[in-house]
C-alpha cells in the first residue's frame, strides 16, 4: 500500500490530513501498523487537551508492543475516534481510514511544513536498510 499523496507525514510515522475547515486528522501510517502488528488497544487524547508539537498524546498497543503517538503540530484536540476502542484492528486493515484524533492547529502553516508522501517514503526506505 502506498502512502496517499494528499496527506502529510511525520518522521515518527503519523499521517496528517488537512480538512476543509482547517482542522487536521491524525493516524499512524501503513509502515507503522505493519511494524507493530495486530493492534489490540488504542488510547486517544482527551477532547479539549492542548498539545504541543511532538508531545506524546496517544498510545497504540499491538500484541507485541506499546507505541506512543505524537502530536504532529501544536493545537487543541477536538475529537477522538471512539470506534477504535472496540475495533483497534481497523488500524491494521485500513490505516489511512482509521484515524485516532483530530486537532485544531494553532498555526496551519506548521502542517504545511510536515513531510510529503515522497519524502516520507524515502525516510521509510532508508530506515529499512
Amino acid at each position: 500500500m502506498s502512502n496517499p499523496g494528499n496527506l502529510k507525514y511525520t518522521a515518527s510515522h503519523e499521517w496528517v490530513k488537512t480538512e476543509v475547515d482547517g482542522t487536521i486528522t491524525i493516524g499512524i501510517t501503513q509502515h507503522a501498523q505493519e511494524l507493530l502488528g495486530d493492534m489490540v488497544f488504542v488510547e486517544a487524547p482527551a477532547v479539549g487537551r492542548k498539545l504541543k508539537a511532538k508531545e506524546e498524546c496517544a498510545v497504540v498497543e499491538s500484541v507485541k508492543a506499546a507505541a506512543d503517538v505524537y502530536a504532529p503540530v501544536s493545537g487543541e484536540v477536538i475529537a477522538a475516534n471512539s470506534e477504535l476502542d472496540s475495533a483497534p484492528e481497523r488500524i491494521n486493515s485500513d490505516p489511512y481510514a482509521a484515524w485516532i484524533f483530530k486537532i485544531k492547529p494553532d498555526n496551519l502553516a506548521d502542517v504545511a511544513a510536515l513531510l510529503d508522501a515522497a519524502v516520507y517514503q524515502a525516510l521509510v526506505d532508508s530506515e529499512a536498510h
Partner: peptide, 18 residues
C-alpha cells in the same frame, strides 16, 4: 510514534515482544 523494539539485549529473550 515510537515503540519498544522487538529485539532484546544480553539475556537473549523476547522480553520486548511483550
Amino acid at each position: 510514534m515510537s515503540a519498544c523494539p522487538t529485539t532484546e539485549g544480553a539475556d537473549g529473550f523476547i522480553r520486548n515482544l511483550s
